[in-house]
């Protein structure tokens, strides 16, 4: 079953005024359950507008032409709106700015409470969510979220979404503003969340390195249109297309290109640092073997 099915979706901001701006232009996209999709694109390419359609935060403008079905629910239906919000967990950019309660426990419980679950179930979910994001319940539950460090705040905010146990998890620039160690931790966490809580994950990012590393599939947007859709290796293989969309290639791919230009015979389709390192090790091994 398709987790997400988007048909002919267009969206125009400030329709009918001089500020009119086309954000999405005839998007067709389906995401299968269990996929980890990276949505990439330059600023203003329509990424955020697209993902906000998934849980009905932005309504489909032209209902006659366009439709979005998520987990069997039509997103323009008012009846299933609440259920939709709990099915699609959304972690926005800088999620720590959404923290509001006086304790970590209450903040994480906000979602489950809105689902009108029983007290026991809520407590169980809060414990599980904090555990998954790697925060100890007994240490953190009673602390104020505003006293935590930046990385801890972000984990609490992610736990607040995870506690709703959404089938689909959408993350908007989840590693923005973090140091390299923090980035690696959150990227690992996303893999764990996919395995343990939400089987389908969509990540919006402009870090091609991160996407090359973790995504199964990459969807590139440019000026509201999908310009590339495929595995990271396929998408990053189309060099001109990626650059025309205002995006960079992954660092490893760029290094490989430079090496090839200087006559080092690495494979041109490396996309992660690990692959590049393997390639170089292989070449070194081959050279040593030659010398023997």
């Amino acid at each position: 079953m398709q987790a997400i099915e988007i048909k002919n979706l267009s969206f125009i901001y400030s329709k009918g005024t001089p500020f009119e701006q086309k954000a999405l232009d005839d998007i067709n996209l389906s995401v299968a359950e269990g996929e980890l999709v990276g949505v990439v694109g330059a600023t203003g390419s329509g990424k955020s507008t697209l993902i906000q359609h998934l849980n009905g935060l932005i309504r489909v403008q032209d209902k006659k032409r366009a439709s979005i079905v998520v987990d069997g629910m039509d997103t323009s239906s008012k009846k299933t709106l609440r259920k939709l919000r709990f099915t699609v967990g959304m972690v926005f950019q800088y999620p720590e700015y959404q923290l509001f309660a006086d304790t970590v426990e209450k903040d994480v419980a906000f979602g489950p409470k809105n689902m009108k679950l029983g007290a026991e179930e809520i407590n169980a979910r809060v414990r599980r969510a904090l555990d998954v994001v790697g925060l100890d319940y007994d240490t953190f539950a009673t602390r104020s979220p505003f006293d935590l460090s930046g990385g801890e705040k972000r984990r609490v905010a992610i736990a607040g979404v995870i506690a709703m146990q959404p089938r689909i998890l959408v993350l908007d620039e989840p590693v923005a503003g973090l140091d390299p160690a923090g980035r690696a931790e959150i990227l690992d966490l996303i893999g764990k969340l996919k395995r343990e809580v939400s089987p389908t994950v969509i990540i919006v990012s402009h870090s091609m390195d991160d996407m090359a590393q973790i995504a199964d599939r990459i969807v590139a947007l440019s000026h509201g249109k999908i310009v590339a859709d495929g595995s990271p290796r396929e998408v990053f293989g189309k060099r001109e297309l990626v650059e025309a969309a205002g995006l960079e290639l992954p660092t490893a791919t760029r290094v490989a290109d430079k090496l090839i230009a200087r006559g080092v015979p690495v494979k041109p389709d490396v996309i992660t640092m690990a692959e590049l390192a393997d390639e170089l090790a292989r070449l070194k091994g081959a050279k040593e073997a030659d010398n023997v």
Binding site: N55, L57, R85, F92, N114, M115, V161
Partner: peptide
């Protein structure tokens, strides 16, 4: 708008 969206996404009424 951003904060409202984040809370709506957590089911805030």
């Amino acid at each position: 708008t951003k904060i409202m969206n984040a809370q709506k996404a957590r089911g805030a009424a």
